[in-house]
Amino acid sequence: MFQFAHPEAFWFFTLLPILWLLRHWRKRKSPTLRFSDVARASGVRKSWRQRFSFLPDFLRLAVFSFLILGMARPQKGTRNLESSTSGIDIMLVMDISGSMKAEDFHPQNRLYVAKEVVKNFIKGRQTDRIGLVIFAKESFTQCPLTIDYGVLLHLVDEVRFGMIEDGTAIGMGLVNGVNRLKDSPSKNKVIILTTDGANNAGAIDPVTAAGVAQALGIKVYTVGIGRPGLVPMPVDDPVFGRRYMQVQSDIDEPTLQKMAQLTGGRFFRAKDPQALSQIFKEIDALEKTKIKVKEFWEFDERFRIWVLLALSVLVFELLFSGTVFRRLP
């Protein structure tokens, strides 16, 4: 950015034509020698001094012009931004129980779709610490809080069935996530819990676990995955190979709703892949990182070059006026 600190100085340019006219008026009033006949001098060619006699006046005007530009204080500005972020700590708590094999999210199963949506959610964050807890009959931490999203995405890909004995310990999964956040210095702590069933394992029930989260100021979003009613479940038979059975989808919505309400979060129900993706986009919009940006400009003064030019031209003008273009009174 380029600017003038005192643009009002440009009004002095209006004086330059006046000074030029005054100078020529004084020249016309200066003493002259009169001759009776100048016909004999009419054929005399003008010398180069006569041709450039205007140069001293021109240099004086240049001096005034450069001084005016210096008075206007030209400045070259550099824009600087200072940003401070208030990151959010997010624990993703994922159900990997056997019921997540259901293929009502055709052509993939529930776990596959959930992992893809979670990975897109991670890629959309920037300065937040994110971790991953998985649960079935028990629960463990797949990835602690980290800002290394590359490592986290790899560990999400590594999640698979059979890592934990089958079951659905929603309460234990939530407590594990809470335990990872309880010592966090962040002011904003969030858990996103995805499940497709009802709690049937673990020593802690989901509502009690939600009460612990509430006491620690942790917000919980609960997401129920799967279509209601009968859904196709793959069964691998050693004799007949893979076949499908219709099983009842059983999601404990009242409990998931109560968990979210206790902690100030929200409950969502995803009945297809598009709905699940939209839910995570909505959560992403609700839990935005606060970024404060302070803008300021640093200006480099450029008036010195114009003052130096004015002084240099003034020296040349005095030199020429006193020697080459010296006028006798």
Rank of each mutant, 00 (worst) to 15 (best):
F325M: 12
L59D: 10
W25G: 12
V159K: 02
M100N: 10
Q248P: 01
K46P: 08
A275K: 12
G162A: 12
E82M: 09
R79W: 04
S42A: 14
A72K: 12
K46H: 12
K115W: 03
G171R: 02
G211M: 13
N200A: 05
L193C: 05
E282P: 00
L59H: 05
M94H: 00
M163E: 06
A201Y: 11
G70T: 10
D252P: 11
G77C: 02
R304C: 00
V38F: 09
I96K: 04
E317Y: 10
V38E: 08
K115H: 02
K115S: 01
S47A: 06
L92T: 02
F2D: 13
D37W: 07
F316K: 01
D95K: 04
S277F: 13
N120L: 10
D104R: 07
L69E: 05
M172L: 14
T14N: 03
L15K: 05
T323G: 00
A215M: 04
A136C: 03
S83G: 06
K123D: 13
N199S: 13
F52S: 11
F13V: 03
G98Y: 06
K182C: 01
H24W: 14
E82R: 13
P74R: 09
K182F: 09
R110A: 03
E165P: 00
F140P: 02
E295R: 15
